[in-house]
Amino acid sequence: MRIEEVQSTSKKERVATHTHIKGLGLDANGTAIGMSAGFVGQAEAREACGLVVDMIRQKKMAGRALLLAGPPATGKTALALGISQELGSKVPFCPMVGSEVYSSEVKKTEVLMENFRRAIGLRIKENKEVYEGEVTELSPEESESSTGGYGKNISHVVIGLKTVKGTKQLKLDPTIYDALIKEKVAVGDVIYIEANSGAVKRVGRCDAFATEYDLEAEEYVPIPKGEVHKKKEIVQDVTLHDLDAANAQPQGGQDILSLMGQMMKPRKTEITEKLRQEINKVVNRYIDEGIAELVPGVLFIDEVHMLDIECFSYLNRALESSLSPIVILATNRGICTVRGTDMTSPHGIPVDLLDRLVIVRTQIYGPIEMIQVPISCLIMCFNFPM
């Protein structure tokens, strides 16, 4: 008798450099487990990072940052990602390199602040009236053109939605039909339509059609439970930088100069401090009303010795901000010159900022760890689906 395993139709994550890191690999007492959560060795550094995670959860890291110091290829980036994973899967993680701040178009401090805002998430919860279900019918109704001629306009759209409890037929505005086309909605898809705004969201293909095609690119979802018309809590995760960029987009006019400006590739523009303050006021109001929840993420700055004295001064100020993420710095330098000055300092960081840092040292891998690395790679190859 021949038995074959059926491959899952769920989406597979792309395997990149540090996608195998799932945490710090600590037990309940905070002790490092040999090969765990994608880590090999670095037990002391992992346990120290575990203490930092506890300090962050107890809200005792305000105004401070973490410095990972050690030779190249000793897992500094992996430790930063492990801290982010320990804090939660939805916590934003924003990696950058110290040399990224140098640009001919944007100020150094602007690049730093932009990455600070990328690392601060906002979870917005809204209760909305929606129509949700599997599309059983989708038929646009046409009418004669009101402007004359032989063309026809879509007067309305008839759509059928089906759930476990029942079915409904809806008559929708033609503007919603444009949204349905943009979302590439077809019969058999699971969608929801917001009753107030008319926004359409395609959730996925109904799992009843999972056996039709042998394609793994499609996401199959179960048919919704309950009634077609319901109140649903919709959660959206955005970063403060997303809000900044959305409100900083210039709205062009219809004149020839505006059209030319839209056609040409725009230069990167700075977001003003006034705009950020206005967005902060709106965010604080949403938090006070209970609509939104702030999710401080992790900003990881590698090769921090590449920053100059102006950037370090700005970092001091940014760490004191009420909207500040967890800042993790990494360097492989010992005592060197602070860029932009003549003074030398440990790790090329000014002493006043160094006093704010919790320093964790990483060690060079020994012979035992070097043997364990290929073993852990084999284990990960068996765990990841090919």
Rank of each mutant, 00 (worst) to 15 (best):
C377V: 04
T175H: 06
G348R: 11
D242Y: 07
N316C: 06
Q277Y: 04
N332K: 07
N316K: 14
E293D: 07
N332F: 01
G148H: 06
I375E: 15
P224G: 12
N29Y: 11
Y177G: 08
I349M: 08
G334T: 03
D355Q: 04
P367I: 12
H156A: 10
E86P: 08
S324H: 02
Y365F: 15
V157D: 01
I33H: 01
F300Q: 03
M306G: 01
G160Q: 03
M306L: 10
M370L: 15
I21D: 05
L259M: 11
L294R: 15
R46K: 08
L353P: 03
V304R: 03
E126T: 13
P72K: 12
L180V: 01
L79V: 05
S313V: 02
E218S: 08
K182W: 00
S99D: 06
M343C: 00
T17Q: 09
V15S: 02
E270N: 09
Y365E: 06
T167G: 00
E194Q: 13
E183N: 09
D242F: 02
D308Q: 12
T17R: 13
G366A: 10
G166M: 08
I159D: 03
V40S: 11
I371N: 11
R46V: 05
Q249P: 00
Y131K: 09
S146H: 09
Q85E: 09
H305W: 07
L66N: 02
